[in-house]
Design a binder for these strands. Structure first.
Lengths: 103, 103
DNA sequence: GTATAATCATCGGATAACCGATATATGAGG
DNA sequence: CCTCATATATCGGTTATCCGATGATTATAC
């Protein structure tokens, strides 16, 4: 058990990122690396994208650029609500974090 | 895959909660239910507490009331830093969540 | 058009996280 | 002391998540 490996948030973060901007797998991977500190393996990111596609939450254009579908937007909304309930005191968490990092 | 099951945050949340107040397993369980919407199984919460104890991050007094150790405080600090990096834009996430819930 | 690199994709396996069932301890009431 | 309810603890099994290796596709350079 690692107390802060944040396992299980990959799909949520993908939806969140695609909600801001359509991206390719490589772009998503780079953005995730910025957040987690390490780049997710290809064996992690692509199966996740595949499953999200199969569930109809995202779609890919001809250039493998992924976007949220309507259904995905709804899912993201629900996930955000859950996140906010789970971490309703996130502001305090931020307060106890003295570190700075590049955007 | 559930896009928002928040799997893997149990230990982090336990440390976070104990950082605010020492609690028994039952109190922790109730607080987690408030956040997640469902009470964690005994088979979930107690093994987690055991492992945190074995790692020296928390300690229990005679009445099974758990507290953070010094080491646990350090671990929590690191986990918070990681959380904040991971979700540096959490404020936006909160913004897209229209729901209200009981504290 | 071919070579090279980057990206995308799949597969099998390892691990972690969690649950349900069950067993033990603790405490309150009578 | 005895009973019952609650809290604590353990165990086995299931599932999800992720990684590394490998192969296929696409783009770029020449």
């Amino acid at each position: 058990m690692k107390c802060c490996d944040m396992r299980g948030f990959l799909s949520y973060l993908i939806l969140w990122l695609l909600g801001k901007k359509s991206m390719s797998g490589a772009e998503l991977s780079a953005e995730l690396e910025r957040r987690k500190g390490s780049k997710p393996s290809p064996g992690t990111i692509y199966p996740a994208l595949k499953e999200l596609r199969e569930k109809g939450l995202i779609s890919a254009d001809g250039n493998k650029v992924y976007s949220l579908t309507k259904k995905g937007q709804g899912e993201l909304k629900g996930a955000c609500a859950f996140f906010c309930r789970m971490f309703y005191d996130a502001k305090e968490m931020f307060g106890c974090c003295p570190l700075k990092w590049k955007k």
